Simulated scan of single mutants.
Amino acid sequence: MRARLITVGLFGLIGAAILVSLGVWQLQRLAWKEGVLAEIDARISAAPVAVPATPDPVADRYLPVTAEGVFAGDPLRVLVSVQGSGPGYRLISPFEADGRRVLLDRGFLAEGVALPEPHEGPITVTGNLHWPDEVDGFTPEPDIARNQWFARNVDAMAAHLGTEPVFIVLREMSVSDAPVTPLPVTSEGIPNNHLGYAVQWFGLALVWLGMTAFLAWRITRRTA
């Protein structure tokens, strides 16, 4: 009996140690991820600069920029649902500034609401460069006839609207764009599930120890 109890005890302690180490590792990942998110938040809210001549999708992601120009064509619509506002569309307009045509994500327009009248004259916009990763194998192709897209695909939208693959997500505009509501870039959508994973590993370690104690109790009962 003693040998069996020792084997069960060692098995239980080693298994629990592995599970606890995985939980600790997730806590370390949590601290790392919180640091990354803090850096992203600081970058998003930094002072805006002019749009780089050749922005890099990695190095310049979230870069705050400002530009003065005009809307240069009808917007395309990306289907989206906003909590508290229901279904609607993101309006993506071509924007001409300093001799360049870029993409401008103006924000949310509720379903059934008419587009605002085009603005005349120059407009100053402030926002953040972004390259959203929203397309996967389940994303439908855009319905060009109905002007309805199902994800923000920078390259495809740029080709359709005849712009550079440079995408500005609006934060502020020098004139009112109502009823369009800006949906600025934030870090809220970036996953950070490490705390939940850590709790799961620690919980499994407790279950493992409980099962080990129960098995040891069963052994002692059988030999009593």
Rank of each mutant, 00 (worst) to 15 (best):
W25F: 08
Q26H: 14
L27C: 09
Q28D: 15
L30E: 13
A31Q: 10
K33H: 02
E34C: 13
V36C: 01
V36N: 03
L37W: 11
L37K: 13
L37M: 13
A38V: 09
A38W: 09
A38F: 10
E39L: 13
I40K: 12
D41Q: 07
A42G: 07
A42W: 00
A42Y: 00
A42T: 05
R43V: 01
I44G: 05
I44K: 04
I44V: 14
S45G: 05
A47D: 13
P48V: 07
V49H: 12
A50D: 15
A50H: 09
A50M: 11
V51Y: 04
V51F: 05
V51L: 11
T54D: 12
T54S: 15
V58L: 08
V58C: 00
D60K: 06
R61T: 08
L63V: 03
P64R: 06
V65N: 10
T66C: 02
T66F: 13
A67M: 09
E68R: 15
V70P: 00
F71L: 14
F71D: 01
A72K: 05
G73M: 04
G73R: 03
D74K: 15
D74L: 11
P75I: 01
R77N: 12
L79Y: 13
S81L: 04
S81I: 07
V82Q: 11
G86Y: 05
G86P: 04
P87N: 07
P87V: 00
G88P: 08
Y89L: 02
Y89P: 00
R90Q: 08
L91A: 02
S93R: 00
S93N: 02
S93Q: 02
S93H: 09
